[in-house]
């Protein structure tokens, strides 16, 4: 138990050191962070975008953004892993929103699109989770109350803003904010143990 905890701490410290080296322009450090995080980043991009080529392009952009922005990471404000996965998700969501602007009509959506998965008649947030989530995170999402689950799925998987969630579900914006907050807190409690990138 004690040694496992130490290994986690060591890994976090290594991430922080590597990020600081990247901020100084060390390409070898970036390569090491790529080795650690390319799988989770690419898996997230592929799951949410459902397209190999776009997932590759977005993943490349994410690591390029890391190269440019590593100096913005402050270890006193949080863990590198959380900061970086947030950055990656942000880029992926940008891509999803760009697609939405290009293709506003549901007729253009394919059965692989996450938006289609959510909006097709009879489909639910549970089916979207089944399609793109995996393992303990999927189980933790399913364990949330339905309203929180739906709000989180619309935000995280579909790229909907809080306001869009309120409009689509017909509930007040304040309620959506509360659902997202409670859902994230519960997810954090459920999934607080570190996840192995190599899993």
């Amino acid at each position: 138990m004690c040694s496992a905890r130490s290994a986690v701490d060591l890994s976090l410290e290594e991430d922080t050191t590597l990020a600081m080296l990247v901020a100084r322009g060390d390409a070898a450090a970036l390569e090491e962070l790529y080795n650690r995080y390319s799988r989770p980043v690419f898996s997230m991009a592929f799951s949410l975008l459902r397209d190999q080529s776009t997932a590759e392009d977005v993943s490349q952009e994410v690591f390029l953004a890391l190269w440019r922005r590593a100096g913005r990471f402050d270890p006193e404000r949080g863990v590198f892993r959380h900061w970086f996965l947030h950055l990656a998700h942000n880029r992926i969501i940008d891509e999803i929103r760009k697609r939405k602007r290009v293709s506003l009509h549901s007729a253009d959506k394919t059965p692989e699109d996450v938006e289609y998965l959510l909006e097709a008649p009879g489909n639910t947030a549970d089916q979207a989770i089944t399609a793109v989530m995996f393992g303990s995170a999927a189980e933790a999402l399913r364990g949330l109350p339905e309203a929180q689950r739906t709000a989180l799925v619309m935000a995280y998987l579909q790229g909907a803003t809080q306001q869009e969630i309120a409009d689509r579900t017909g509930v007040p914006l304040g309620t959506v904010k509360t659902r997202l907050r409670l859902g994230l807190i519960k997810l954090r409690q459920e999934l607080s143990q570190p996840v192995d990138e190599e899993a």
Binding site: P40, L85, A137
Partner: peptide, 12 residues
Amino acid sequence: GAAALGAGHEVR
């Protein structure tokens, strides 16, 4: 919490 979701995709 959000990072936990980010790590919850089938590994590619």
